[in-house]
Design a protein around this nucleic acid. Structure first.
Lengths: 149, 149
DNA sequence: CGAATATCGCTAGGTAGCGAACGAATTATG
DNA sequence: CATAATTCGTTCGCTACCTAGCGATATTCG
């Protein structure tokens, strides 16, 4: 979504895309030596910090569709980093746990918080708050339109 | 790239992702009846407004890698909407032109500018300017880090 | 209780993005 | 001029997002 105006001057939409893709690119390139994608990293992060999690809850936490997470988990299982066991309560649910290999790899991984700091560190707090409010407003409006279709 | 903080409160990065994805989702769902993706729409837009364009220049205008655009153009060619001819000057270059079918389809397509208006319309100009500046700064920093790797 | 409904995870098929590597063509350089 | 370096577009293989639809399980409700 470039959303650049006809005149070619920069729009909020265009910068939103650029910024999102640049951040993801830096995450990806940092994680490339570990053969890990950015969203795979978030799954490991969650399992390492929160502990074993039912797939459904993980999907809600990371704001991913079931199908999307399903594929990412399959990759991590194939790599031997995550284990899927059937949860006792609900036979449909799958409980996700880090394997020993997953825990070992997690300890080797670099801290990725430097990316957010590098991007937004030192910027005036009020301006950051404004940015969040604008993006939040726009997102809400877009999701409203989406739901009405 | 969620980039949500450990505490879980919203970060600029998280909202950047949400906003970008919400905008693209609305574009995609608007274009679904025409069996067209958002970036395909941008290619048609450019060819309809600017005229026949060398693939390389189109890639720069839309800020897409050669490989990415290559695939998108292939799809549009397969659909019979765009024609690829070899440019006279440089035998490597490929000139892109709308076919008759492409021009016909373009005339039927809805105006998508309502999306940007719906998202950011009515928001204080100064706040929008701040948002752009923050995102622009962050993007620049991220790209700097990327280049240094 | 039994039937309709909802939810969980998976598969299939699609778009959009990337890097790496390659052939062909062009440009720069020794 | 000949060779080296670059550029253009393609292909390959990957991540990450989506919708639609399926089977199995839970839940709700008549």
């Amino acid at each position: 979504m470039d959303q650049r105006s006809d005149a070619g001057h920069p729009t909020v939409g265009a910068w939103t895309k650029r910024c999102y893709l640049a951040g993801r690119a830096l995450m990806d390139s940092t994680l490339r030596p570990y053969d890990l994608g950015s969203t795979q990293w978030y799954v490991l992060w969650h399992l390492a910090h929160v502990g074993p999690t039912v797939q459904r809850d993980l999907g809600r936490a990371l704001e991913l569709e079931r199908a999307t997470l399903s594929g990412i988990v399959a990759t991590l299982v194939r790599k031997g980093l995550v284990r899927q066991t059937s949860s006792g309560d609900d036979q449909r649910q799958r409980l996700l746990t880090l394997t020993a290999a997953g825990e070992t790899l997690w300890r080797e991984l670099p801290d990725l918080s430097f990316i957010h700091d590098a991007a937004f560190g030192g910027i005036d707090e009020a301006e950051l708050a404004t940015t969040i409010r604008v993006l939040q407003t726009a997102t809400g409006r877009l999701n409203n339109l989406l739901r009405k279709e």
